[in-house]
Simulated assay, not measured.
Amino acid sequence: MRHGKKINHLGRKTAHRKSMLANMACSLIEHKRINTTVAKAKALKQFVEPMITKSKEDTTHNRRIVMSRLRQKDAVTELFRDVAVKVADRPGGYTRIIKLGNRLGDNADMAMIELVDYNEIYNADKQPKKKTTRRGRSKKADAAAPAAPAVESKKASNEEEE
């Protein structure tokens, strides 16, 4: 029975699974997005997000913890130097999984997992938008605008007289 066993074993022994996830995490940090199966992407998300959280505080202890899981010095360096700066203000949810359809060879569900802050397409709306109006203003309308409050003040004085 599987009571209380929540980890997806991905059809691999423990050592193989840990090595595979470490290599996939290093590839994700290096390339900012990778294509894989949906099951591996979900397992990778659980594997890599705690390490990104640890990278936000650059201490020797956190570097050693991340190094023990990733096992590649250049990936750890890039994680703490580049990725941590980019996700510093984000409280969590550093990765996004986008489903791509089925693989041609074996019909496996494929997905793309990416670091959220590195996608320019989805983050294009983060820049402040300029306020747009449906009707354009002409120069005549702008010149007439200061005269409008004077008309209102005349109406107000007429009402006071009555």
Rank of each mutant, 00 (worst) to 15 (best):
R12H: 07
R12S: 01
K13L: 14
A15D: 15
S19D: 11
L21R: 14
A22I: 05
A22M: 15
N23A: 05
N23W: 12
A25H: 12
L28P: 09
I29A: 00
H31S: 00
H31M: 00
N35L: 11
A43S: 11
L44G: 01
K45F: 01
F47S: 01
T53Q: 07
E57D: 15
T59V: 05
T60Y: 10
H61W: 11
H61E: 12
R64N: 05
R64D: 03
V66D: 10
M67C: 13
L70M: 11
R71A: 07
Q72R: 11
Q72P: 07
K73L: 00
D74W: 13
D74M: 15
R81V: 02
A84W: 08
V85K: 13
R90V: 03
R90N: 03
P91Y: 04
P91R: 08
G93R: 12
Y94W: 00
R96V: 10
R96W: 09
R96P: 15
I97Q: 13
G101F: 12
G101P: 10
N102S: 13
D106Y: 07
A108E: 13
M110R: 08
A111Q: 06
I113P: 04
I113H: 04
L115M: 09
Y118H: 09
N119V: 06
N119R: 13
I121M: 03
N123D: 02
K126Y: 07
K129D: 06
K131H: 08
S138Q: 02
S138N: 05
